[in-house]
Design a protein around this nucleic acid. Structure first.
Lengths: 155, 155
DNA sequence: GCTGACGTACTCGGATAACGTTTGTCCGAGTCCGATAGG
DNA sequence: CCTATCGGACTCGGACAAACGTTATCCGAGTACGTCAGC
């Protein structure tokens, strides 16, 4: 999985509860990561419609909807792509004893199992929202953390 | 995920119910894939202890235990490695408002969610065995398929 | 004093290189089977 | 006829390149704000 997913997730958490847009450069400085590369991830989020970008002097990125309405899965799919990790190459249709294509209307057992596993993975990710993650931060490292982050990003 | 996983899975299914060892070259010809690269995957399976390799003229690969005792997860981890797709880089410990390491004893919310999803994925894969896959082949493309494959691999 | 246009500085967005992992290949070490020669 | 030895060919195993995808970077297009001139 692309490592930028983690950055995108952290950015969404930081953006949650933010009223004014935050520039990509500031988010990069806050997380201490490459500004240009983080910009790429944010562009992907923008293309997926999760964040809204405004240009100009006071521009930046902001969530398009409430953090409770954005699932972790949405962020992952926006950055990493919606395709499954497993890609069936239809091995059964190759070789000397290849099965004829007309008998391969439904996916083979291997693809079925992989598809089920992938679905379970996505379900687990879909059940958690950015708001849940933000609440977890307040619970684990202190309730005053998020307001402090918010103040830093505003300055 | 590594594409060789699919090959390894198909090989394990083909090997199930086989009494004598099958050379890697024959498995490659049967599946119509690169012989040298498939050999690499089989070596990984051998290292993981899923298959046993015998050298010499009538040598080849054979399952070390019954197909019902080999889970899909075991094959996947043997080829792709046991590490999770997501790797936490501890972003929270970086930047101007970095959390002190002593307050990061337990994983952050993002890592927790990802870990849960990964576990769900692995559970789905652990619940299916190679024998299940073989039975599925007989059910879907015809009961006579596996004996035919077995005969071809023996010749 | 108010309104309009202008310039500037800041923002995002897509096109462009460098690195690492996966994919693919090769040759050497080891081993079993068959043939052969001797008892 | 049986047995021990030798030769050969086939097997796996790990070390060695090429290709793709991810990582990282740059520069250009566009926009909002602040300023200034005109009314």
């Amino acid at each position: 999985m692309s490592g930028g997913v983690e950055w995108g997730l952290h950015c969404c958490v930081a953006l949650s509860g933010m009223t004014e847009p935050v520039p990509a450069a500031k988010l990069a400085e806050f997380h201490d990561v490459s500004p240009t590369y983080l910009a790429k991830q944010l562009q992907a989020l923008s293309r997926a419609g999760l964040v809204h970008s405004t240009q100009g002097q006071a521009g930046g990125y902001a969530l398009t909807r409430d953090a409770a309405e954005i699932s972790v899965l949405a962020v992952v799919e926006a950055i990493d792509g919606p395709q499954s990790a497993f890609r069936c190459t239809e091995v059964r249709q190759r070789g000397p004893l290849a099965a004829p294509p007309e008998s391969c209307t439904l996916p083979c057992g291997i693809a079925t199992v992989m598809g089920r596993a992938d679905r379970a993975w996505r379900d687990a990710l879909a059940g958690v929202s950015i708001a849940d993650l933000a609440a977890d931060v307040g619970r684990n490292v202190g309730a005053g953390t998020l307001p402090a982050v918010r103040a830093w990003l505003s300055s």
